[in-house]
Design a binder for these strands. Structure first.
Length: 1136
RNA sequence: GCGGAUGUGGUGGAAUUGGUAGACACGCUAGCCUUAGGAGCUAGUGCCUCCGGGCGUGAAGGUUCAAGUCCUUUCAUCCGUACCA
């Protein structure tokens, strides 16, 4: 008998597959396509590891399964080759990264082939190949055209060792994801992709994705949508001791409009009580910029409370005026021309930047506030980009509803003149607590932070800001959450209460989120509370959970609560959980685990609720060190009950609260419904109350408004709507949705990446490299190391950097940043569809045939990569390059394979399992692949077990031996044919169904059972045909896991074609059914007997047979069965 | 804190719709066959047991004729996230 020898048969079949090109596919509309891909690997010098083996065992099982169904299966492979390891190696050794990469690819490819993975190698791609990155660059230029790629100065994570900028997700706990060194912040001009424009649609699609929940939640959180409102707090100009506000009206257009407009506007403003200075037009026909600047300044008195109306001021003139007068400007009115709706919603557009890009951001921060006057009538060419730029820089928004509409000319549309008053805009998700906003907090980086400092506060403010900004965010994170801050000396006016509220600066407010400024509501926000407590700021409660009167008495000592003591009418268990609340004045509280939602009142809870006639419910939840409670509030003369989930307690109305609560039920006396008075009328609302252990009360969650003027008595959820509406009418707020997600920073100051295809021209700014000049090929360099000045090694290649402007032909410079590697991997799944196209990145028709990917397999990149791929696909869809929006139908996110000790494999620990070693040890690729899939469900982590693979190898060997025995036997015994056939069909069904739910471990175990069963059946000998089928089916079913063994057996059994060209076997349900069925007999749900009955036995016969069973009789005895339940074909349950 | 996931024999894990809990495999025990191989075969293997049976899916309650599966509460572990207003 031949022995099972993987090292012999595996290379043989790998060669055959390659020779016959069996895995190469073309578009074929007559066939159903299936696109399966693993995340393409970064070919490191270390070679393939178990993670790759696991991933591609899954990929290949799926690919082969579908191929065996006659489907057109695309299973491509490529290499994600840009990145730091190759570059760092190049820096160390001087070897070109491309050279090392080529070696690594060759090595990986060899290894993949030894795994027997059925890849279409004709589609192999490599992201660092100019033929590939040519199209990555092309995509960049398309995004640039659409305003989705832009450049911006910003503080960025900087790795001082790798000397490169890092994206947020490349910073792990304050360390560089590559080298582990501590990162810093550095201000640089960077390229971004405007993924934030797609936040909403990327979010919307998430629920429909057939992806693991884990990834879907991670992406949802990453996008971080929250609904709230922007609210404007006017600055209190009466108390600011710095420069008083100057109102400067600059308008940014020239021509006929000016002559009439300026006097007209002056008149209107004066009528409104403003002091207005409006310079006359200069006498010269074409004044220079300096002329204009001088003229404006000379002809206007710039002092307190003055509005200056200027005219004929271009962008640079406006800035120079600001510069020259060199003092804080409290107000600026901008006259801006027509704009698209995009502008009104604050969405920036790329072309707006181009003209005004060189203005210094710091100058702009001299503005204390701004407003915009818009006209819908001016022609497009008179747009003044600088104004829009300013608006974007300071995050302007326009509020048409409350602006003053003014008519300039009778035949033209109205101008819109907004109110002129300096203000701070905050973002809040709790506008209902507006009346409780007792101070304002700005992030240290907020554009008004420095300016708002009054003279006597200036030093402390500046030193605070300096420390806070310098402090790395890591320190901030580790700073034990102790709040720090500084008062600016300035005040703002709460638009709701009219109160003067101090403006503080603190680093617990992040500049990157919302508006970088918050209204602090210390009564209802933990963080604000902590801050207010530390700096003695006022706390105003505006939400109550008790509307009748004075509120409640708080327990005095938190410690006692924890020790399961009764404190001032509140009974707690040892964990500090609430049981009961009692008297305050006339008001009593009844506690118990009764939920507000009526549907949830079940069992005793419902009884209690009904008996008491509850009309209102207070539910209390723990927050931080607070206590847990559910409570009703029932005023009147009555007894009180509390019910916890662990015991029930009744307390007398006189509040003779026992010092220790006994478990068990006590006397219950309920207050009658008619005795319940008051306004407990918010069914469906949950009210929360937090009790801090230091004795301070803090309310949060849903409740009822108090101290809120006209809104008193309104529920918080209604108030959220109503207050925003009111603010909108007043013109001091608007509803607003914000996202945590930031734009995607793609600039890398590294050599080994796709060069950003941009040319900087002194006259035309940033210009995209035209399509016919692509690719911008990476030049050869002598030294790959970044210069450390924030530029890549490319900056040192003068003949490459110096080029000509595509627009004007004049001298210009190339962009020296390269793209983030994620850019390359954001479209490779499309390139696979059409990998050799020289004309386009892909042919839409071809891509629409193959894509989207049906199965995408990987174990990493839950957020970054998988979000970027989605982003680009949405854009391509919008551009008409694809007819779908979502790139991946089904995502399989598998676990990690750990070392035998259960810890992560790592070179330093020396516990790495090399898949090739396993193959070479004689187990072979088939055993390796089958084992990793047999270890458990794919999404779970598993620990490698060297005895486990031996077990799988034994299984494959048993399959082999069984086939050999059949081949060598005389095949004459047909005795077990029916049984063989039955188990065969059963197994086909089980394996097929398991495949559909991607449960490979159970599919393999079904094959083991099948094999074991056949071993038992063969004891009687083999029959020729049925056994041939049984073994052929075994070979077919095992093929997705152990393809080499499968082909070999199939050939030995006389099969003339390759397994993967044969159609997957089909089961026949009729052949699965046994002659007899086993009926479980239970008495009172406990198993007492099993019946073997013919499969057509009727119900009555089975029931009486069940009752007759000896063991059943023993339990039933003389008792008469109350009920006999029969589940057809399964069980009989006798209830006595 | 918050969000997500997972808790089943000595181990990895099965149980797909509420219907025989522990499939399959590892390990272990005994035996056989062999001269010794990291081999193969057979039987056994959740716990307790007075051998009738009882108990068992992290814990406690509940719904049901019947619960690993559904509901309520709770504990533990792992992963993600981090002052997001």
């Amino acid at each position: 008998m031949k022995r099972y020898n993987p090292s012999e048969i595996e290379p043989k079949w790998q060669q055959t597959w390659e020779d016959q090109k069996v895995n190469e596919v073309v578009v074929d509309d007559t066939k159903e396509k299936v696109y399966v891909s693993g995340m393409f690997p970064y070919p490191s010098g270390a070679g393939m590891h178990t993670g790759h083996a696991f991933s591609y065992a899954i990929v290949d099982a799926i690919a082969r399964f579908h191929r065996q169904h006659g489907r057109n299966v695309l299973n491509p492979m490529g290499w994600d080759t840009f990145g730091l390891p190759a570059e760092n190696y190049a820096i160390k050794t001087g070897t070109a990264p491309a050279v090392v990469t080529a070696q690594n690819i060759a090595n990986f490819k060899k290894q993949f082939k030894r795994m027997g993975v059925s890849i279409d190698w004709s589609r192999e791609i490599n992201t660092s190949d100019p033929e590939y990155y040519r199209w990555t660059q092309w995509i960049f230029t398309k995004l640039f055209e659409r305003g989705l790629a832009y450049q911006k100065e910003s503080l960025q994570w900087w790795c001082p060792v790798d000397k490169t900028v890092l994206a947020n997700e490349q910073v792990e706990g304050g360390h560089c994801w590559r080298c582990g060194s501590i990162v810093e912040k550095k201000s640089m001009k960077q390229w971004f992709f405007r993924i934030t424009n797609y936040a909403e649609q990327l979010l919307e699609e998430i629920p429909a994705l057939d992806w693991p929940q884990k990834i879907k939640t991670a992406q949802t959180n990453w996008i971080g949508k929250s609904q709230g409102a922007e609210i404007e707090f006017a600055l209190d100009t009466t108390t600011k001791s710095g420069a008083a506000p100057n109102y400067l009206l600059l308008h940014g257009f020239t021509g006929r409009a000016d002559k009439n407009f300026i006097p007209w506007l002056k008149e209107r403003l004066e009528a409104k009580g403003y002091t207005v200075q409006a310079p006359q037009l200069p006498n010269t026909d074409s004044p220079t910029e300096d002329d204009q600047v001088g003229y404006v300044i000379d002809s206007c008195t710039i002092d307190e409370n003055t509005v200056i109306v200027g005219h004929s001021l271009g962008g640079s003139v406006a800035m120079k005026v600001l510069e020259k007068i060199n003092r804080p400007i409290a107000g600026l009115v901008l006259v801006a021309p027509a704009v698209e709706p995009a502008f009104r919603t604050g969405e920036p557009r790329a072309f707006w930047d181009t003209f005004a890009f060189d203005y210094d951001y710091d100058k702009i921060t001299k503005l204390a506030a701004y407003r915009i006057i818009l006209s819908d009538t001016l022609e497009a060419e008179k747009r003044q980009p600088y104004l829009l730029y300013l608006a974007e820089k300071i995050d302007a928004t326009f509020r048409e509803s409350t602006a003053n509409r003014v008519h300039f000319c009778a035949d033209e549309e109205p101008f819109i003149l907004a109110n002129i008053s300096p203000s701070i805009t905050v973002f809040s998700t709790r506008p209902d607590t507006l009346f409780g906003a007792t101070f304002i907090v700005l992030a240290p980086e907020h554009h008004l932070a420095k300016q708002l400092a009054t003279d006597d506060m200036r030093d402390s403010v500046q030193s605070y800001i300096a420390t806070a900004v310098k402090k790395s965010e890591i320190e901030r994170m580790n700073d034990t959450k102790e709040k720090t801050g500084v008062f600016t000396g300035s005040y703002a006016i709460n638009p709701a209460s009219g109160e003067k509220v101090p403006i503080w600066i603190a680093d617990y407010v992040l500049n990157g989120y919302g508006t970088g400024a918050i209204m602090a509501v210390p009564a209802h926000d933990e963080r604000d509370y902590a801050f207010a407590a530390k700096y003695n700021l006022p706390i105003t409660e505006v939400v109550s959970y008790f509307t009748l009167n004075e509120g409640i008495n708080a327990p005095q000592e938190g410690k006692e609560i924890r020790e399961r003591k009764v404190v001032d009418g509140i009974i707690m268990n040892q964990r500090g959980e609430y049981l009961l609340m009692s008297e305050t004045g006339n008001t009593h509280f009844v506690g118990g685990g009764v939920e507000a939602d009526e549907d949830e009142m079940t069992g005793l809870k419902r009884e209690i609720a009904e008996e008491v006639g509850l009309t209102g419910i207070l539910s209390m939840k723990p927050v931080g060190s607070a206590i847990t409670a559910h409570a009703y509030r029932i005023p009147g003369d009555y007894n009180v009950i509390a019910k916890g989930h662990f015991y029930e307690v009744v307390v007398d109305a006189d509040i003779q609260v026992p010092s220790e609560i006994e478990e068990g039920r006590h006397t219950v006396e309920w207050v009658k419904k008619e005795d319940v008075a008051g306004r407990l009328t918010w069914p469906g609302h949950q009210f929360a109350w937090q009790q801090y252990l230091d004795g301070t009360q803090l309310y949060s969650g849903e409740g009822v408004l108090v101290n809120s003027g006209a809104f008193d008595g309104m529920s918080t959820s209604d108030a959220r709507e109503e207050i925003v509406e009111w603010l909108e009418q007043e013109g001091t707020g608007r509803s607003k949705t914000t996202y945590k997600m930031r734009d995607w920073l793609i600039s890398r100051q590294r050599y080994w990446g796709a060069p950003i295809p941009i040319i900087h021209c002194p006259d035309h700014g940033a210009v995209a490299v035209p399509e016919e000049q692509l690719p911008v090929v990476l030049p050869e360099v002598a030294d790959y190391a970044p210069k450390g000045d924030g530029k890549s090694a490319l900056a040192g290649v003068a003949e490459w950097v110096n080029t000509t402007c595509p627009t004007c032909g004049g001298p210009a410079l190339r962009e020296t940043d390269t793209m983030d590697g994620y850019a390359c991997s954001s479209w490779y799944l499309l390139r696979y569809a059409d990998p050799r196209n020289n004309e386009k990145a892909w042919d839409p028709e071809t891509a629409n045939y193959w894509n989207p990917v049906d199965y995408y397999i990987g174990a990493d990149h839950a957020v970054a990569h998988l979000l970027y791929v989605r982003f680009w696909t949405h854009v391509f869809n919008e551009m008409g390059l694809l007819n779908f929006k979502e790139p991946v139908k089904k995502m399989i996110y598998h676990g990690y394979i750990n070392a035998e000790d259960g810890t992560k494999m790592s070179k330093s620990k020396g516990n790495v399992i090399d898949p090739l070693d396993i193959i070479d040890q004689g187990y072979g690729a088939d055993a390796m692949r089958t084992y990793v899939l047999f270890m458990g469900p794919v999404e779970l982590d598993a620990a490698w077990d060297s005895r486990g693979i031996a077990g799988v190898y034994r299984f494959l060997n048993r399959v082999w031996v069984l086939a050999q025995e059949y081949i060598e036997s005389d095949k004459s015994v047909t005795k077990n044919d029916d049984a063989v056939r039955r188990v065969m069909h059963k197994t086909i069904r089980k394996v097929t169904e398991d495949f559909h739910r991607l449960s490979f471990n159970t599919a393999i175990s079904a094959l083991m059972e099948y094999t074991n069963e056949l071993y038992k059946l063969k004891v009687d000998g083999f029959s020729k045909d049925v056994w041939h089928d049984a073994l052929e089916v075994l070979a077919q079913l095992i093929a997705p896991f152990a393809p080499h063994l499968s082909e070999e057996l199939n050939q030995e059994l006389g099969g003339e074609q390759l397994i993967q060209n044969m159609l997957w076997p089909v089961w026949d349900d009729a052949l699965i059914v046994d002659e007899t069925m086993t009926i479980i007999v239970q008495v009172n749900g406990k198993l007492r007997a099993k019946l073997d009955v013919a499969k057509d036995t009727d119900e009555d016969a089975i029931k009486s047979q069940a009752l007759a069973e000896e063991n059943v009789q023993a339990f039933v005895g003389d008792k008469k069965p109350a009920k006999v339940i029969y589940v057809p074909g399964r069980l009989v349950n006798i209830v006595v």
